[in-house]
């Protein structure tokens, strides 16, 4: 069973992402910030994390670094999904161990094409 952890402080975005991912047959879990997400990952590593960047408490980049440093934390694919859409942010994300990068707004086609490139579909 493929699982996706959706990390975003917007309930609306989480809901839209969940609808798309459930259509793609992922079992979804949600987190509102990086801290919640990290706790969820330490309980059980998901197949993939869909990760917002700007969030309260712990942001996406802090989460990514903590995840990759934790035991078993290199396993999940991490796909950023953020309004940050400049090359500097993209490069920073990829240099810190992200696997793909989505610039909001997104739709089903974008998620599907990125996930299939990562061999997740």
């Amino acid at each position: 069973m493929k699982t996706c952890l959706i990390v975003d402080d917007s309930r609306v975005i989480r809901k839209v992402a969940r609808q798309i991912l459930e259509t793609l047959r992922f079992t979804c879990e949600e987190a509102e910030d990086g801290k919640q997400a990290l706790e969820a990952c330490l309980r059980k590593m998901p197949t993939v994390v869909l990760l917002d960047w700007n969030m309260p408490v712990m942001d996406g980049m802090q989460f990514l670094k903590a995840l990759r440093a934790s035991s078993g934390g290199r396993a999940p694919k991490v796909v950023f999904c953020t309004t940050e859409n400049d090359m500097k942010h993209i490069q920073e994300a990829m240099a810190n161990g992200a696997d793909e990068y989505i610039m909001k707004p997104f739709d089903m086609d974008i998620i599907q094409s990125k996930f299939s490139q990562l061999g997740l579909l």
Binding site: N85, M87, I110
Partner: peptide
């Protein structure tokens, strides 16, 4: 557009073969 460069194009190719013209 931002939409178009995300459809089918891996982010690594965007980084290597594209430049951002504006937002």
């Amino acid at each position: 557009s931002q939409f178009e460069v995300q459809r089918g194009l891996p982010i690594s190719y965007l980084m290597k073969y594209f430049s951002q013209v504006n937002n």
